[in-house]
Write a protein that binds this DNA or RNA. Structure first.
Lengths: 139, 139
DNA sequence: CAGAATCCCCACAGATACTG
DNA sequence: CAGTATCTGTGGGGATTCTG
């Protein structure tokens, strides 16, 4: 209320004419994508399926650490979003294949870009973390 | 164990010589990055800060929907990973600025690539979802 | 202004057991 | 083989209140 509130460094004056429409971003598909891929397994499965279709058991063994429940749920989620297809072969015993749809394949590219970034800057993140973890206990 | 288990379609024979080392991927930095960015707000804040440094209150208003708790926690997390810097100006009242570090700026690029993908394929995902939601109630 | 502290909730991960 | 069913725990995240 008083003029004390105006006593801020001039460098802080730097701001955008329009502070960026954040709600647009929040409601925008970008958030959706990260919500879908941000879980523990989705991205991993997309990358695995990027090498070609695979059967349920193959994926289960390949990921190794994922529960059947999570494997099924994650694949179903990806299928719902049209990123993965699912085909049941009525054999005995049943065989089910999963693979990337054309849409899923297009996702593979930007995903790889991010993966590359992660690999390239892994060390820097580690350093930064230990720096903060060493001087100040987080949490 | 019986030969009934061999009675699978020949198309399923298609598999990789080496089923892809998934544990490597699971333990690899890619997972870490997605864990950091995959939460509800991190990516959004990185994009916002991509337009330049901003103050706490600006961010709070810009995101609009985020609680103070989450804003602080998310910024701290990004700071810990060396993606965001934080500068306190000892004024009255205090003013705190947040901005992207050089490392954070490099992340902005692959992030944008993924964002572009999301925007471009938003409609397709929506269609796929309604397709599955219409014929088969998920969950 | 920029937070720290506290309480609470529920969505979702994980393990286990069972089935067509 | 490829799931479903069920239970349980963890913690992400929201609302509120208080403070330097």
């Amino acid at each position: 209320m008083s003029d004390a509130y105006t006593r801020v460094p001039s460098v802080l004056t730097h701001r955008l004419p329009r502070p960026v429409p954040a709600d647009e971003l929040a409601a925008c598909p970008v958030g959706e994508v990260f919500r879908r891929m941000g879980d523990k397994w989705s991205m991993l499965l997309v990358v695995l399926l990027g090498s070609g279709p695979h059967r349920y058991g193959e994926l289960h063994r390949a990921v190794e650490g994922i529960s059947q429940r999570m494997l099924t749920r994650t694949l179903r989620g990806l299928e719902t979003d049209g990123l993965v297809w699912r085909e049941v072969h009525p054999t005995t015993p049943p065989a089910v294949e999963y693979g990337l749809t054309p849409l899923g394949l297009t996702l593979l590219e930007p995903l790889s870009a991010l993966a590359d970034w992660a690999v390239r800057h892994e060390a820097e993140i580690g350093e930064a973390r230990s720096r903060h973890g060493g001087t100040r206990t987080p949490r």
